[in-house]
Design a protein around this nucleic acid. Structure first.
Lengths: 338, 338
DNA sequence: TTGAAAGCGCTAACAC
DNA sequence: GTGTTAGCGCTTTCAA
């Protein structure tokens, strides 16, 4: 059977399509009996309004799009997944349509952000996974819908920044190591194209400077958030610089790679070399006697972004997203004496 | 500025809307010069065809929907994420629209699967995260679009089953333990509402029976794929049954919980109690000297499902998805002597 | 309380 | 090679 249209329902109910439309859209000027009769018939016929038709008729559904840059086959930190499910649930809770879109640097040069928004008829946009040189960051003025970016600063005042205070979190992590007697702390950072790397790097330097410890470029590694690259570079570091007694890693995954390098070198994680990670991935507590790390909540980030965009769509003016909470979770890989 | 319509473009180009439509949709009967002039004007005006209008005009885009049941805030095994990104990439590669939908047991009772498909105008459907008693499994006859289910058998011959041979994989894992001298192997399984639990459980029994080892119900735990429940139940098991010398766990996450219980009891993972997990999550190699586990590839599952559904949509008749590959990855938590 | 009619943006016969 | 026209399914005035 073909899909039932409003006309089919009208015919079966012996009324006009206008009346069916009104009945199904809860207009007040319909006889209650007529309404329920029509609703029943529609249900029986499996009638579902054609969205295209509705849209043409002038009833456009509001839609929040989540645009993920560079969607990878796996997501070891769970960040993308957490954001996705958070936005999704925020949309459900607020009864607004949600769609997922993806892009990458090539596609960003082929199709403008504006055109992307028009194509999907977006009412609101949330972006995640973007890096500092991505073309879309320059096109934010062109779109005229509420927009939020996760974990990257946009320097556009109309765009909501959803992130935590990465600089301060890194500062706290490194300060914690210092307070516990570590003096030769190296940094295993992500790539410089990620805004969070920059912030975590400056938090690291801030803590060292405050403690009057030298900031040594040769102790600042860049491992692109990749476990095996972290492993490799940490190994080299430990070979050339035996004084290192602690590592601050900008992700738990890199911390894992680093820990493996430490153990292979015959050193112990926690005792000889303290390690602090970042993210608190679900398995962090099981790793190397428990990974000390900065916990952040990607689900909540997504949820907050979704909720804020919804509020903007609904015309609220003073919408603003606070810095997300974080927490230093102390476990075996870097014990506290305090 | 309001959104440009085809009429605006036509006016600016001094041609009819028909010509614009033809030019933009690569019809042959348009003067090449006219075509490129129109394309240029459309680009300048940021013209994007209104999908609703297109759809009304009779040009319906094909859409594959991925329906996820019970989307959780986190996805520790990465299975949902992997499937999602796989389907997404398959759709990109085949140039077909992709949409993500979610449901749960409550929503399944409120809206039929048929209505869901109609609402989203789906051309193809892929379902993941479903459990044996979910209502939608009974409604498969009602939908008339190509459909695939991931990791659950549907007993509907028209529905593609995308999964690996879970029974055989479990059989191999347990046989491996037996061959390496383990005689008292317990099972830490997922809940009985997951089809894979049933299959992995029967693979476990198969291996024991083949080796003429007793199948003891008191050694078969059910921990709902949850790490802390696995921890708890394993602890109880080890207390009451000191003979246990190996554990086969139906997920790496549960294996983690079990390993923690083992270590807390003062036993060593690998030596005294061998542990085999399931999934090979990205961090498995870093856990407990490397977790021995069955590797599966969720991304590929999603990709294959997407590709197969696409082929069915395109009218291919003999579409069929082979069992996905798996592999026993031997690491420290259960060494092989062979 | 109901219905006739216009129109949303687009495509596709078909005529020119 | 180009334009005219009908119509897709729906909502929404506005008149009855």
């Amino acid at each position: 059977m073909e899909r039932a249209t409003i006309r089919d329902v009208a015919k079966k109910a012996g009324v006009s399509i206008t009346t069916v439309s009104k009945a199904l859209n809860d207009y007040p000027d319909v006889n209650p009996e007529t309404r329920s009769r029509i609703q029943e018939i529609a249900r029986q016929m499996n009638y579902v309004p054609n969205v295209a038709g509705r849209s043409m008729g002038g009833r456009v559904d509001k839609v929040i799009g989540l645009l993920i840059n560079d969607l990878r086959p796996i997501d070891p930190s769970g960040s993308v997944y957490g954001i996705l499910s958070g936005v999704c649930h925020a949309c459900q809770d607020n009864n607004i349509e949600f769609i997922l879109m993806t892009t990458d640097s090539r596609q960003q040069t082929q199709r403008t952000l504006k055109v992307l928004c028009l194509r999907k008829q977006l009412t609101g946009l949330i972006c995640a996974g973007f890096r500092l040189h991505d073309p879309y960051l320059q096109q934010l003025d062109e779109i005229d819908i509420p927009c939020a970016f996760i974990d990257i600063r946009t320097d556009n005042p109309d765009v909501l920044d959803v992130t935590m205070d990465n600089e301060r979190a890194a500062y706290e992590a490194v300060s914690f190591l210092i307070k516990n007697g570590r003096q030769n702390i190296a940094l295993v950072n992500g790539g410089p194209d990620a805004d969070v790397s920059i912030l975590r790097g400056s938090g690291y330097r801030w803590a060292l400077e405050e403690a009057h410890l030298p900031v040594r470029p040769d102790r600042m590694l860049s491992a692109n958030f990749d476990a095996s690259m972290a492993y490799q570079k940490t190994k080299e570091l430990l070979d050339r610089d035996p004084a290192v007694d602690a590592l601050f890693c900008a992700s738990d995954l890199m911390a894992l790679g680093a820990c493996r390098a430490i153990e292979e070198k015959g050193l112990t994680v926690g005792e000889q070399i303290a390690v602090v990670g970042f993210d608190d991935i679900p398995v962090a507590r099981y790793l190397y006697g428990g990974l000390t790390t900065i916990r952040q909540d990607f689900y909540l980030m997504g949820y907050m972004a979704g909720k804020a965009i919804y509020q903007k769509i609904e015309g609220q003016h003073d919408v603003h997203v606070d810095h997300m909470m974080y927490e230093l979770v102390v476990r075996g890989s870097a014990r506290g004496k305090l």
